[in-house]
Amino acid sequence: MISIRKARTIIKSALAKGKEMELKPLSVVVLDAGGHPIAFEREDGASPGRFEIARGKAYGAVMLGLPGSAQMARAENQAYFMGAMNGAFGGKVVPVPGGVLVKNRKGEVIGAVGVTGDTSENDAEAAVAGIEAAGLFADA
Score class of each variant (00 low, 15 high):
Met1Asn: 11
Ser3Gln: 13
Ser3Glu: 09
Ser3Arg: 02
Arg5Asp: 10
Lys6Asn: 11
Ile11Lys: 02
Ile11Ala: 09
Ser13Gln: 15
Ala14Asp: 08
Gly18His: 01
Lys19Tyr: 14
Met21Asp: 02
Met21Arg: 01
Lys24Ala: 12
Val28Thr: 06
Val28Tyr: 12
Leu31Trp: 05
Leu31Gly: 01
Ala33Cys: 05
Gly34Thr: 06
Ile38Thr: 04
Ala39His: 04
Ala39Thr: 13
Phe40Thr: 12
Glu43Pro: 04
Glu43Gly: 05
Glu43Asn: 01
Ala46Ile: 04
Pro48Ala: 12
Gly49Ile: 11
Arg50Val: 07
Phe51Thr: 13
Arg55Pro: 02
Ala58Ile: 11
Ala58Gly: 11
Tyr59Asn: 00
Tyr59Met: 00
Ala61Asp: 14
Gly65Pro: 01
Pro67Leu: 07
Ser69Gln: 13
Ala73His: 12
Glu76Asn: 13
Gln78His: 15
Gln78Trp: 06
Ala79Arg: 08
Ala79Val: 09
Tyr80Gly: 00
Gly83Pro: 00
Met85Asp: 01
Gly87Arg: 14
Phe89Gly: 00
Phe89Leu: 07
Phe89Arg: 03
Phe89Glu: 01
Val94Glu: 02
Val94Leu: 02
Pro95Asn: 01
Val96Trp: 01
Pro97Glu: 10
Gly99Phe: 00
Gly99Glu: 03
Val102Ser: 02
Lys106Ile: 07
Gly107Arg: 03
Gly111Ser: 13
Ala112Pro: 05
Val113Met: 05
Val113His: 04
Thr119Asp: 05
Ser120Met: 12
Asn122Leu: 13
Glu125Val: 12
Ala127Arg: 08
Ala129Asn: 13
Gly130Val: 05
Ile131Met: 09
Ala133Lys: 09
Ala134Thr: 10
Ala134Phe: 04
Gly135Ala: 00
Gly135Ile: 09
Ala140Ser: 14
